[in-house]
Amino acid sequence: MLKLLIPVDDSPSSLRLAEHLYARLAWYKPPVEVHLLTVRPALHGDVGMFIDSEQIRQFHQEEGLKVLAPIRERLDADSIPYQIHIGVGDPAEVIVQYAREKDCDEIVMGASGRSPFAAFFTGSVPARVLHIADLPVSLIK
């Protein structure tokens, strides 16, 4: 069984992933296991002093579900089964970690998630995933 990890954020390229994924799934003989992942940034500083860990976990869960909603709606409309995952931390590291944990065959992700200006200063998540992943990575424009 082919296992695909689909990292999703709220960028336009991530939103186009649903269309690409739908077309691509027709190429493969079923079943294909689809894992949707969004990675939330860790809350910084002293937030833990004011909010308990369960509230922080719930916040990440709610925000992650909002990000995943558009692609889930598209996949649900076409009755394409998937599993959802919400990670917290450095996006590139979490993406590669999930791909390893789920024994995925490929990572399929948007080519860019942030503005070129932001990527210049902080680095591109897709570029970092390409660099550290030990499995195929497809980038979708």
Rank of each mutant, 00 (worst) to 15 (best):
P116M: 07
T122H: 12
I56F: 01
A18I: 04
I86V: 15
L43F: 13
A92C: 12
G45F: 04
M1T: 07
P116D: 06
A18K: 06
P126Y: 01
R16P: 02
S124C: 02
L37Q: 11
E106K: 15
Y22P: 00
D46V: 12
V108D: 01
M49R: 02
H44F: 10
H35E: 13
M49F: 00
D9H: 03
M109T: 01
I140K: 00
A69L: 11
Q83P: 05
H131D: 09
D46P: 08
R24P: 08
M1S: 03
V96T: 15
Q58R: 14
A133L: 08
Y22R: 03
L15K: 05
I51V: 11
I95P: 12
S13P: 02
A23W: 07
L37W: 07
I56W: 00
L37I: 09
P136H: 10
R100A: 15
G64N: 03
D90K: 15
G89A: 12
A18G: 07
A69M: 06
D9Y: 05
G48K: 05
H35T: 11
P30Q: 05
R40S: 11
Q83N: 07
S79E: 14
D78S: 11
S138W: 03
P31A: 07
D78M: 06
L68M: 15
L75T: 08
W27C: 10
G87Y: 10
P136G: 12
L15I: 10
V94C: 08
A69Q: 13
I107T: 04
W27F: 09
L5D: 12
L25I: 01
R72E: 14
I86S: 06
L5Y: 10
K141T: 01
L36K: 02
K66R: 15
I51T: 06
Q83M: 08
L65F: 04
S115N: 13
Q61F: 11
E63K: 14
D103C: 13
G45Y: 02
T122Q: 13
H44W: 09
R57W: 03
G45W: 00
V88C: 04
V94H: 04
D90R: 14
I95R: 11
A119Y: 05
I107L: 02
V39M: 11
L2Y: 07
L25G: 06
V34T: 08
M1V: 11
Y98D: 08
I107F: 01
L15E: 12
R72S: 10
E62V: 14
V88N: 13
A26H: 07
P136D: 11
M49C: 00
F120D: 04
S14G: 05
D134F: 01
L75P: 12
K102T: 08
E33N: 07
P116C: 08
E93C: 08
S11H: 00
L68H: 08
A69F: 09
T38R: 00
G123W: 01
E19S: 09
I80K: 00
R74L: 15
L4F: 14
L2M: 15
F59P: 04
A118M: 08
E62A: 15
M109N: 01
S115K: 11
Y98N: 06
A77Q: 14
L25M: 04
G48C: 06
Q61W: 10
